[in-house]
Write a protein that binds this DNA or RNA. Sequence first.
DNA 1: CTGGGCGAG
DNA 2: TCTTCTCGCCCAG
Length: 692
Amino acid sequence: MRTTSLTPNIAKPIKIPKRNDDRIILHFDYDCFYASVFENENPSLKSQPLGIKQKSILATCNYVARARGVKKLMLISEAQKICPDLILMNGEDLTRFRDVSKKLWAFLRAHSWNRRVERLGLDEVFLDVTDVIAYNRELLNVHALGASFFQLDSNDPVKGFAFDGSRFYGCVQPDDKSKAKGGFVDVENPLCVRLMLASHLAGYLRHRLDGDFGYTSSGGISTNKLLAKLAGSVNKPDNQTTLLAIDGNGADAVEAFMDAHSIRKVPGIGSRIAQLMEEYLLSRPAELRDREGNNVTVGEARRYPGMSSDLLEQILDRPGAERGSGEKVWNFLHGIDPSEVKEASDVPTQISIEDTYMSRPLQTPAEVNRELHALATSLIRRMRVDLTEADIHPTVQNATSSSGTPRWLAYPKTLRLSTRTKTKQPIPTDGASTNGADVPNFSRSSRSAPLPSFVFHFSPPSPSTSSLPSTSTYPSPATLSCEEIASRLVTESLLPLFRRLHPSRSGGWNLALLNICVTNMVLVARDESSSGSVSGSSMAPGRDIGRMFRAQEDKLREWTVYDTSSIPATAASPLPLAPSIDIDINPAPNVIKDTTPTGEDIAVEDLVMAEEEEEDDEECDAQFQGRQVAMDNSSTNIPLLDKNQGDDEDEDGDDTWEEDQAVSESHRCQVCGHAVPAFAMSAHERFHAMNE
DNA sequence: CTGGGCGAG
DNA sequence: TCTTCTCGCCCAG
């Protein structure tokens, strides 16, 4: 038990850290993601209570089920008692979720200028849009905020969407209803303007996520990851909230926002840290008594007498503790989070596959062998999907060898096997357990070894397999190869590791979990045809996925109309949602080819990209343009679509709007010759002024 | 580099 | 009550 040796430092003045509001961060959280994936595969599920199960628990469920009292992480039996007609889907295989997650991530990446697009789990994404917002703030005309245009591409002044810059999009926090001040855009306050812009960008992206892919999401908009994420959880689902820096009275809104949260809700404060803090705070003679179940709020912790970065460091100090966690937590309590949104990377740092055997733990060598083989097969398959070059176009079936052999983007050096036994005893091997002070954690044990190189071979040992077409079963070559490699891996690597973990030969291990993992990636420098070899080993992969996505996106545009005014205004939203439409008039094909490289040092990948650029669906763009301008025309001044004509939503391939009419309704820019709709013209002119 | 802890969804 | 299947960062030795 931690006792009184910690010294609150009352004498010294406590340093209050200063927030840094330079950045603008968006956070997206797809609503009940697993359930949404199944609903998109089978839309009839949308109206029914749907649960996703993994073994004996409900990993998640849709909102229909939640309305019936079903909760996440419930036992299946319990959920079925509450909701007997609950439809259950098996979510143990994550492949489909990973695929969708990647797709949505690629979409968001295509809208990043600085490549800071970080995935957290499968269903959350952070975007650092500081640069996009800064650019659009310069574009903003404060005298005509209602007729603003958001430019999504600094090279293409007509790619973007119209919006009402006199309002925030979606919800704001604090929501100062009484003063009718929440959501007021103070044009004199740069941060306020930047947050307003970001709210529209987030709204646009969320709308597209929904319209193009069928995934609603919750969005958070603020100046760092911590705040953006917490803000996003205020209005869920299918909504967003922007955290204002000051409230209607000019007081600091961020601190008030943080103070109301339980410390356990703060991302970065996990169970361990929360427990240590609560132990300290609640055991003090101070006025902090258990109000409603031991829950300490950020405000209570922050204002605790003598609380400081140093005190927290002492409270949290324990063997193995992270250095500086005191300061980190102290910062969290003030809504400060300096951590950067990490740049998108295509290569994971590890890939692992596991299965649990709770109801019937593994006992015999035969069982272990069988399970290791199954896990290893999945692992090989995953390595081929995630560590090889993304094959051109989404129609790729297996990422395995169909035509040529794919290139490896990275080679894991290490293979690891982890197990957990059912009884919580750690592992029989040790005797010198040094601990005794801290909690006796029932946890995993693991052993690792070098990953043999044969796992990187693709072709099945050709003569033998191909000469046997008469087999009754027809495994695809890829499958066969995966299993063969898996078998080898089991006998040559995994079983030796297993014996190291469980020396007793004859079974009787009570294995409740097996996990195999490849890690320690060595990135392969990519140097396509023009061999230039990008600097060092850490090339920047992932550009081509973004590119690949782009082609896809252009196809989608053909039949999608972005009318964000159709987002249902939930009761929680105090503001009328700003209407905005997407326009994409794209008269200049092959933009990349046109631009001549300005400097000597053009990256090799850029050259590769330029070569690959080849698109020829201008006709579609023209049609789309026609529709957009016509829509603009239908409203009196600014593209207000509140008067929703129902036909607009239908994606009729044969557009009734005529192209000629469309062109005549838009103006030609004198400088660049782009066709620009009237409402975007003033922004467009400022675009040229900026780049004089 | 290995094995484990913690924090995230 | 720690349930599932992960992924990433960090630590000490």
